[in-house]
């Protein structure tokens, strides 16, 4: 009987490895499929051409420029607000019902489907605030989407700082803000950065909310750079330009019937996966370094 149980034990170990292998295999198949189909399309021209009706001429210039600009807006909005919220909840917040409501809300927002954020942005940013279907609307939408990730990462990083650091600073007569500015935020910055990178990696692949606010799928121009063009664009005019992003460009190519466009989709997908892998890999490496180099 003992032997039978030991056999079960062994079989479960094998089963566990097999289950893990399904994940590994899927990932390999996905990556290899896109690499093989897309490889012929990836060259300098692919990055420097606009989308085109002819699959062989089409490129991702407007898509990666759009993605970069949207990510810029997202980071600019989500990082200050997220870090400030995390700091408030850890260092300032009194224990009362207002704090409870904020905490419950953050937990709930993390579980709201991303397409709901798209509907929110459509109603709020696009029509109520009149920001239009612009880079600014998209950036702010994604910022709201990754805010819970940034807040949770900030709080975890701050919680890892031992209490004696705060007590030392307070004992020297520092105010709460001085403690936060000179100790809490600098010491937790690596942890915060990890969370920000994971959030940005999530945001760069998000398609649904950006489609919902009505981003166009066929954009054969770039938003004009500040002080160029006729009439000269203002410093922030690009914020209100129509745009497309990498995942939308890929979706557009995937939904075309011609097979040639599928190869374009594979190439765009390969670039996109590589970008998210690099970002996630950076975050994992940072966290690993952090865990090894704990100083207190």
């Amino acid at each position: 009987m003992i032997g039978a149980h030991k056999r079960w034990d062994f079989m479960f170990g094998v089963l566990g490895i097999l289950a893990l292998m399904i994940g590994v295999l899927t990932f390999t198949a996905l990556f290899a499929d896109m690499a093989i189909k897309g490889f012929s399309r990836i060259d300098a021209n692919f990055f420097l051409s606009f989308p085109s009706r002819r699959a062989a001429d089409a490129g991702i210039l407007s898509a990666w420029v759009g993605s970069t600009l949207v990510m810029f807006v997202t980071a600019f909005a989500a990082v200050p607000v997220g870090v400030a919220a995390g700091v408030y909840l850890e260092e300032y917040a009194p224990k009362n019902w207002v704090t409870d409501i904020i905490e419950i809300n953050i937990t709930n927002l993390a579980g709201v489907p991303s397409i709901i954020y798209g509907l929110l942005a459509l109603g709020l940013f696009v029509y109520t605030f009149g920001l239009g279907q612009s880079i600014l609307s998209a950036g702010l939408t994604l910022a709201l989407l990754i805010l819970p990730i940034v807040i949770v990462a900030t709080r975890e990083a701050i919680r890892a700082i031992p209490q004696i650091i705060r007590e030392g600073a307070y004992a020297c007569g520092a105010t709460t803000w001085q403690v936060v500015r000179d100790h809490i935020v600098p010491y937790s910055s690596a942890g915060i950065l990890t969370g920000v990178i994971i959030g940005m990696a999530r945001a760069i692949g998000e398609t649904a909310p950006i489609i919902t606010i009505g981003a166009l799928t066929f954009i054969a121009f770039l938003p004009s750079a500040p002080f160029t063009g006729e009439p000269a664009a203002g410093l922030f005019d690009w914020l209100f330009a129509p745009f497309t992003v990498m995942p939308i460009q890929m979706f557009n190519w995937t939904s075309r019937p011609e097979a040639a466009f599928l190869n374009n989709a594979a190439a765009a997908g390969f670039v996109l996966v590589l970008m998210t892998l690099i970002m996630n890999g950076m975050a994992i490496w940072l966290r690993y370094r952090l865990r090894k180099n704990i100083k207190w």
Binding site: I198, G269, T276
Partner: peptide, 15 residues
């Protein structure tokens, strides 16, 4: 596993 969870869903759709 974390990397697998970070792959954009549009990629999974294509797959």
């Amino acid at each position: 596993l974390e990397l697998l969870g970070g792959v954009p869903t549009i990629i999974y759709g294509y797959f």
